[in-house]
Structures are given as C-alpha cells and as structure tokens.
Design a protein around this nucleic acid. Structure first.
Length: 262
DNA sequence: ATGACAGTCTGCGACTGA
C-alpha cells in the first residue's frame, strides 16, 4: 500500500497538477492538506473518476484536509479531539481495512509582525500537545497507523537549508522541536528519515527567490509510523516531480510503501 | 528595497502562509 502526503495549497487551483500526479504516481492513499475550500466544494467528480473514495474536511479560504483512498474507508474523526472551540479544519482520520491513517495540517505558528506575535505560536504548541495526547490513545490499539501531513516542523537542522537564518522561525524553534520529540518518543518512526539518513532533503520550497531552483527548502511534511506500520515499511521518498511542473504547490509529495499483504 | 510569490475573497487590496 503506497501512502502519500501532499500539501496542495488549494485543491481547486492545483487540480490539473494534482490529477496529473495521481495518474502518474498512482498512490493507494493520499493525505491532502490546505485544500482551501468548503467541504461541499471539493472536486469529488474529477478525483472520484480516478478511482478514489474521498473524505474531506474543509472550511472557507484556509486550511482544510482530506483523505483519498482507492479502497473503501471509514471516517473515524473529522477533528482533533481536545478543544471544542477549535474550528480550524486540520485533522481527518480514517480506517482503510486494518490500516488507520490521519491527514494532519499542523499550525504554522508564525505570527505577523506587530501585535500579538506569540498568539499563533501558542496555538501551535497547544495543538501539538493535543496531537500527542490523541496519538498516545491511538498507539494503544497496536494498529498499523500512519499519521501523515504538513507538520510545519523541521525535526533537525539537517532539515533546513539555512538553520541560522531560520533560527527564530516557528518551524525550527526549540519549543516546537521539543513537542515534536515528545510525539516521536511515544514510538513513531519518520518513514522518510529512517530510510534516508542524508541531510538536506526538502519537501517545501518558498515560491520566492527561485528557492526550488536553488534547492533552498525545508523538510516539514512527514509520515509518522506506529511500530506495526514501521515493521511493514519497504520504501519511502520525496517526489520532487510535481514541484517542477507549471503552477505547482509550494510543497511536494512525500510517500511510503507498506507491505500490508494482498 | 514600499521588493520578491501565490492562494483566498460579500475582492481590485488585505490577509495568510512557511
């Protein structure tokens, strides 16, 4: 079973690019982030025509996540538990046979210059703690589990093209990394990193300053595997191809292959 | 250097993102 995560930065603006990639890469399961549309406006016909079942959780303008699956799936959660006041569409979880997956869009955490600069960072850290709490409960099921998505987090300086320049960014700040380590330390394996020790392999490049051409990026899109999933991991990589195409997302897909039989 | 990019919208500039 090939599982990919892809922050598309608007599913409507990215539809031609996304459909091309789905046809070429033929993933079994896709975890999408930043669909930037209402749930009812998700392009179900076009993506359904390629053989995918769809579970979308959207909102107007911002955020939004979805799971695409060639096999039937059962939606298990449409929001991350732990805060009923949180209305941002950042989490969807489903069972696909015996495999549990979640599509995660973790808050960025960078504030705008000026007022209330730390407000968004505090929300990010709270969200991470909620995710860790939820993940602890999921791990107790001892299932093949993949928590994938845009974590808006560079695990180490090897995941940033310019660690010094990014030192104060919410994607690399120490408190963010501490929370991420707590999540990993529950027993998760980073699918890409466990098979690719080499530094400076990225999944996001800013649109500005020809960042992709200069390979000035960050690795912030991750597939975290439960022990049962890690035991089945046969391959993982970053697929740079969609980022080279016309009108790309600023992210590119990260995928892994799990040997789940059949 | 009031910059640079790209997405959204009760839109034509403000806001958000990473």
């Amino acid at each position: 079973m090939r599982i990919a995560t892809f922050n598309v930065n608007s599913v409507k603006a990215r539809l031609p690019n996304l459909l091309d990639w789905l046809r070429e890469a033929r993933p079994d399961v896709v975890l999408l982030q930043e669909i930037k549309t209402l749930t009812e406006d998700f392009p179900e016909l076009e993506i359904g025509d390629l053989g995918y079942n769809i579970a979308a959780v959207g909102q107007k303008s911002y955020n939004g996540v979805a799971i695409l699956s060639k096999l039937p799936m059962e939606v298990e959660a449409r929001a991350l538990p732990g805060d009923d006041e949180d209305v941002q569409a950042r989490y969807v979880e489903a069972l696909i046979g015996p495999v549990r997956v979640a599509s995660i869009y973790l808050p960025n955490g960078n504030g705008q210059p000026g007022e209330d600069f730390e407000r968004k960072y505090a929300y990010k850290l709270r969200w991470m703690r909620r995710l860790t709490t939820h993940a602890r409960g999921l791990l107790a099921h001892e299932e093949t589990l993949v928590l994938g998505g845009d974590y808006n987090l560079c695990p180490t300086d090897a995941d940033v093209y310019d660690p010094v320049g990014w030192r104060d960014d919410a994607l690399v700040r120490t408190e963010s990394r501490v929370e991420y380590r707590k999540l990993l330390n529950l027993g998760f394996t980073d699918a890409f990193r466990t098979l690719h020790p080499e530094p400076h392999r990225y999944s996001f490049w800013d649109y500005q300053n020809r960042a992709f051409e200069r390979d000035e990026g960050v690795r912030i899109d991750h597939l975290l595997l439960s022990p049962q999933a890690a035991d089945r991991l046969t391959a993982a990589d970053i697929d740079r191809d969609p980022r080279t195409k016309t009108r790309p997302s600023d992210h590119t897909p990260v995928w892994c292959e799990l040997d789940v039989g059949a």
